[in-house]
Design a protein around this nucleic acid. Structure first.
Lengths: 140, 140
DNA sequence: TTTCATGCAAATGATTTGCAGTGTT
DNA sequence: AACACTGCAAATCATTTGCATGAAA
């Protein structure tokens, strides 16, 4: 669970500048225990004068560096989580966005033999498991 | 591998009308061996006077009925495949969109115990494995 | 003839981009 | 002083929606 300072340090190490907006965004992300959307962050940051574009740009930067995880939901937008750069997936609650990490990856080995059979070179994969967390089951 | 007539019949059975645009769309889909986007279909169908909205509406209908599979790619839009309504996933080529079905599902059992541990109710999941097919490896 | 489906164009919503000004190094 | 970074607004892109017309039952 990388904290805000750690993330900023990583950025600086690669030559990115430590700016106030980036710090604000990373701080905000570090506080979240569950997943969030770009819009969630923007609603907070808009008041502080930080633009939408900066939110998206920073999120992309963090994602490219492997510091945040991008979750492909079905509803048109993405959710993000701040997490360790170890390959894993999540259970994602449809209602509140809370995430529960899954240990290991059920896909990698299982699929490799099928790929070999057709000479397919696997470059990556997405797995998203969605449903309702214990808190939200009553509401539905 | 459901053919066009079969799909139309399924629609009719539930009370949907058999219209010329729907027939054209389903025919076009049935001809594709690989995956396609809504845009792919629209480029063909536009000439025949079929509107973009109808393409999306029909694709949604077919997807809701489980007659096409929706693939969540990273690049902002969806890909679709016509396939049997049995739960499975695919290898998807980043270059040409060709798909290779995977037998079985590596996720369902593997993840259930983790879900039970936190009283999470699984409603569904996405799995997309992407990479390069044998034909496209040389190009990259 | 009643109801569903269509095409069109405008609306939406998430994300990106151009650009001139600003803050970091 | 260079140049990366920012906010803003306009631009994209995929997809949806409102509405009046046209076709299927």
């Amino acid at each position: 669970m990388p904290n805000a300072e750690h993330v900023l340090a990583r950025l600086a190490a690669i030559g990115y500048r430590e700016t106030a907006p980036r710090r604000a965004i990373v701080d905000l992300i570090a506080d979240r225990s569950s997943s969030f959307t770009a819009q969630d962050l923007y609603e907070e940051l808009d008041r502080r004068g930080i633009g939408r574009a900066t939110v998206f740009r920073t999120l992309n930067l963090l994602h490219d560096m492997g510091l945040v995880n991008r979750i492909h939901t079905g509803d048109g937008c993405h959710r993000y989580t701040l997490c360790e750069p170890v390959h894993h997936h999540h259970l994602v609650c449809n209602e509140c966005g809370q995430v529960f990490p899954l240990d290991g990856c059920p896909v990698e080995k299982e699929v490799q033999s099928a790929a070999n059979a057709v000479a397919f070179q696997i470059l990556g994969h997405h797995v998203e498991v969605f449903g309702l967390c214990a808190d939200c089951i009553p509401k539905a």
